[in-house]
Deep mutational scan, measured.
Amino acid sequence: MGFKLLSKLLVYLTASIMAIASPLAFSVDSSGEYPTVSEIPVGEVRLYQIADGVWSHIATQSFDGAVYPSNGLIVRDGDELLLIDTAWGAKNTAALLAEIEKQIGLPVTRAVSTHFHDDRVGGVDVLRAAGVATYASPSTRRLAEVEGNEIPTHSLEGLSSSGDAVRFGPVELFYPGAAHSTDNLIVYVPSASVLYGGCAIYELSRTSAGNVADADLAEWPTSIERIQQHYPEAQFVIPGHGLPGGLDLLKHTTNVVKAHTNRSVVE
């Protein structure tokens, strides 16, 4: 069995187990497998329904001669939608809004960016022009300005110390501490036991640490421990890039980060 097929099978099995364990909360999309990078042309966006009122959005972007996937989250909030992270750029984010209108038909009224990198804030200006209120932590807003990236308009308070959590509509926002970046936030959907790890969490097929220019490698494993301790009931975990899975993604990420750190020390 090929690795790609095995990865998709694991996603399907995880979703099936969740649907059985929580039949009222989960209505997993039966329309197909989780979209992969090879299936999404740059400039297009796919939506994948995880649970009743919960979707991931998947886009792709060219970077350094390669094409990478990027995940975000959409959560229903009454007759409105909360968006977590842009679709990595203005063109993708405009396509995301169009796809949401086509498939869901509810307005996106608020959006949260989970850290300051372009795959999370690139497209904020498109959201703002569409009347979406954009939010991020003060740290993310400051770092985005320093980096020359787009800056969300509103500040999220109460997320300055490791372990801080605040309720934001249908989700809980959690600051686990520094990891992929010093400002990275985690998003949890309690009604569906869905954990969105953003770039602080890796997919299972990833074996290298990737972009760690703004990471705190020493603190990252401790931050992941905080996530595990705060959300032990999480059933569906979405990484910032690639295929979702279960809580095993947290341990896998820790292993990859520690291996990278150990290699760096040896070198």
Rank of each mutant, 00 (worst) to 15 (best):
K8P: 01
L9H: 06
L13W: 09
A15I: 15
M18T: 05
A19F: 10
A21Q: 07
S22A: 11
A25C: 11
F26T: 08
V28P: 14
V28D: 06
Y34T: 14
Y34E: 12
Y34C: 09
Y34M: 12
Y34A: 08
V37A: 07
S38A: 11
S38T: 06
P41K: 12
V42I: 12
G43D: 10
V45T: 09
Q49I: 05
G53P: 05
V54F: 03
V54M: 11
V54Y: 01
S56A: 11
I58Q: 07
I58A: 08
A59K: 04
T60D: 04
T60N: 09
F63T: 07
F63G: 10
D64N: 07
V67D: 08
V67H: 15
Y68P: 03
V75Y: 02
R76N: 11
D77S: 08
D77Q: 06
G78R: 12
D79K: 14
E80G: 14
I84Q: 00
A87S: 12
G89W: 02
K91H: 15
A94Q: 14
A95P: 03
A95R: 12
L97H: 02
I100K: 01
I100V: 10
G105A: 15
V108Y: 03
V112I: 06
S113L: 15
T114N: 00
F116M: 04
H117T: 00
D119T: 00
V121P: 03
D125W: 09
L127E: 00
L127H: 02
L127V: 04
R128S: 12
V132R: 01
V132W: 03
A133E: 10
A133N: 05
T134M: 03
L143H: 14
L143F: 11
L143Y: 13
L143W: 11
A144H: 04
E145G: 12
V146D: 12
G148V: 05
N149D: 10
N149R: 13
T153M: 08
H154G: 12
S155G: 12
S155N: 13
E157R: 14
L159K: 02
S161N: 05
E172W: 06
E172N: 05
E172V: 08
F174P: 02
F174S: 03
A179C: 03
H180V: 00
D183Q: 00
D183S: 00
N184F: 01
L185Y: 02
L185P: 02
I186E: 01
I186Q: 00
Y188F: 10
V189G: 01
P190R: 05
S191T: 11
A192V: 07
S193C: 03
G197N: 04
I201E: 01
I201W: 02
E203S: 14
T207V: 10
T207Y: 11
A209I: 06
N211M: 15
D214R: 11
A215Y: 10
W220G: 01
W220C: 03
W220N: 00
T222C: 05
I224N: 08
Y231N: 04
P232Q: 07
P244E: 03
P244S: 07
G245A: 05
D248L: 10
L249I: 05
L250N: 01
K251V: 06
H252E: 03
T253V: 00
T254V: 11
H260V: 09
H260N: 13
T261G: 08
S264M: 05
V265F: 05
V266N: 08
E267T: 13
